[in-house]
Design a protein around this nucleic acid. Structure first.
Lengths: 141, 141
DNA sequence: TCTTGACCTTCCTGTTGCTGTAAGGCTTAG
DNA sequence: CTAAGCCTTACAGCAACAGGAAGGTCAAGA
């Protein structure tokens, strides 16, 4: 099948498939006489695997590792487990960080007068607090 | 003061300050006779504002808007409120998305045998389920 | 037969928000 | 006089693609 059908079946844009080939994430497929790329079922399986892994938040390098394990019948499931639990921790850290940001933003939204006045708690907060003291110290000099 | 002191006081790398100037996020500072950039307290305040806004997750274009409001004494606090609550929603959406990913990853980690065997639930899951049926359909043809 | 439209190819550029590096000038201390 | 630690510009590169140009191919319809 041609690249557009491979794209449809795998759920990846054709552009992305070519890109993956260009960075040696997948091996170059056979070519038809006219130069068109030809994909088989194994290729589609690989592409699906990559789509899923990317959706799970693995970056390209991590996908490379996963793909290696996927294609290696000698793998130990513990290796896979390690990769995935590392990623889980990564995602957890990211969520915690975003959660903190969220709380701060929520406070700002709650504190803001939200009216026609120019006076704005948010602006004041963004302008900084501890920074202001630094600046005042500068001014006094 | 020179750029490196401005960097120290604002908490932004000197590189970033020059970058912000190059994309017209901040206005070019005065120059000393030797061509060095000279910064004053107002510049530092602006840079601090930007650092805070970036930490809150605002992208450069959003920072541009915020900065406009910051510098405009005629602003209405409602405009600021709007920008920030939009961002809050954005962050919430991001957190929800990551939360779903997290749950899926946790399930994978929990289901994996985590041993020396090659058999691995995670790999199977990443290889896809509904995709497999598609492939089987292909194979049968 | 010709043409139209839908494929396919490669190559180049742009995105976001910086960071790294090269190559060079200024300034100050020893 | 030299070494260090500033400063300058300009260009390249990161991730993970997306968009578009310029051109070749293929099947269907007038």
């Amino acid at each position: 099948m041609n690249i557009s059908e491979a794209a449809k079946l795998s759920g990846l844009p054709a552009k992305t498939i070519r890109y993956y080939e260009s960075i040696d994430l997948i091996s170059p497929p056979r070519r038809a006489a006219n130069g068109y790329r030809r994909y088989g079922k194994t290729d589609i399986a690989t592409l699906c695997f990559l789509r899923q892994a990317r959706q799970f938040g693995f970056n390209i390098d991590q996908c490379r590792l996963l793909l290696g394990l996927y294609k290696n019948p000698q793998r130990r499931s513990a290796e896979v487990h390690q990769l995935v639990s590392d990623k889980l921790e990564e995602v957890d850290a990211h969520i915690r960080e975003l959660g903190e940001t969220r709380e701060l933003l929520a406070k700002l939204v709650g504190a803001c007068a939200n009216d026609e006045a120019a006076d704005c708690v948010i602006i004041d907060r963004l302008a900084g607090q501890q920074e202001q003291t630094q600046i005042l110290a500068e001014v006094k000099r």
